[in-house]
Simulated assay, not measured.
Amino acid sequence: MSRDATGLRRGWTTGACATAATKAAYAALLTGSFPDPVEITLPKGQRPAFALAVESLADGAATAGIVKDAGDDPDVTHGALIRATVRHGDAGSGVVFRAGPGVGTVTKPGLPLAVGEPAINPVPRQLMRDVVAEIAGQFGGSGDVVVEISVDNGAEIARHTWNPRLGILGGLSILGTTGVVVPYSCSAWIDSIRRGIDVARAAGHRHVAGCTGSTSERVVTELYGLPEDALLDMGDFVGAMLKHLRRHPVPRLTIAGGVGKLAKFADGHLDLHSGRSQVDHELLASLVSSAGGSAELVEAVRTANTALGALQLCQRDGLPLADLIADRCLATADEILRGSGIEVDIVVIDRAGTVVGRSGHPA
């Protein structure tokens, strides 16, 4: 297991684990013996080896299981047991994929898989086809197999992912484009934002909302009555959302979030995580000054501990700081979305979920 530049340990995706389990299970189906550990080749040429946690051979089927190690990434699927059960298929059928317990099924259009298909993404599918062909060539198999992927407790784990909102029901998705989990890259979250946009567009929604959290989602729902699959849990990744929308536009976008995160967006930051961007109190002070705030208020905002603290100071003086922040956010969003035709509005809330600032209200 390699480490990245920060010294954090990399891990393996669900797709890599499912591929290794498939290879071991098919080898056992043909030979009666499970390779352990089992080695696979990933898209970028890495050749990791996986220890088997489960081996079962009976009734014309072989099952191998691997415990996912996500390295030092806070992945909800870390420690999950991923199983592959392989059976002989009909002649000429190739590799047929099935969703076992804990793996979801696609129920909405807009994803890279057809409705009704198991939620096993295209790259993991190709990796599994490759190992089936490898084992078939090595041991004289036909390569016509049914591969059923399951994840222990996967339905419960999936409740903590985007899957229910994306219309992937019954469990987790089997994911991974490289096979490697990079700690804190948040690539899965960003991919979920993109898939959320794709699903909303496929459903015909003309208005979507990017929200920093559950409170802003509730506020937007109350304001606009948007359905769940029009709500994009962008978290800190407003830039990733906007860039995908620029390429795949919808007519209307609402961006909603707390005053602290949106103050960073107003300053041009596209990643709102506290470890990667900070509130610029000089910017807030300049906004207050340009709006006619007193010298005392400008200095108080400049030295405030938080953006919320600055907001409260301005509220006491009747100065609409949150509206000024919203105006700057609108300008930032419009610059990124230039030429897309998307009409944007901004909703700024406080910790209680009260709307404290708005800009660009759509008709």
Rank of each mutant, 00 (worst) to 15 (best):
A114I: 02
N153K: 15
P227F: 06
P74C: 08
D323R: 09
R194P: 03
A64Q: 11
A331R: 15
G257C: 05
D191C: 08
P124A: 03
L324S: 11
D317S: 15
A114S: 10
A209G: 12
R3P: 02
D72F: 10
T354A: 12
P112C: 00
I255F: 09
Q126A: 11
S289C: 01
F97T: 00
I255W: 05
R194N: 05
V238T: 13
G318Q: 01
S142I: 12
A80G: 07
V181Q: 03
P124V: 15
L324N: 10
L297N: 10
A300S: 13
L111S: 08
P362I: 12
R165V: 13
L52E: 13
S294W: 03
A209R: 12
E217T: 09
P320Q: 11
T85C: 07
G137T: 11
L297F: 14
S150F: 06
E55P: 01
V147F: 11
V181F: 07
D4M: 06
F34S: 00
I336E: 13
I193F: 12
A295T: 15
Q126F: 03
E55G: 14
Q138W: 02
A99S: 07
V259T: 09
F265L: 15
G176A: 03
T332P: 02
V219P: 01
P43H: 10
D280R: 14
L42P: 04
K44R: 06
L308G: 09
E343K: 14
P251M: 12
I157W: 06
D4H: 11
P124F: 06
G94A: 02
V250P: 04
V38A: 04
G141F: 00
F97M: 00
H281C: 01
T14I: 01
V298F: 00
V106T: 13
T41A: 13
T13D: 06
P35V: 13
G170M: 07
N305C: 08
K243Q: 07
E217L: 15
V38Y: 12
I168D: 03
A114H: 11
D267G: 13
S192K: 04
G292P: 15
M241R: 01
S173I: 05
L311H: 11
E335P: 01
D72I: 09
I82W: 13
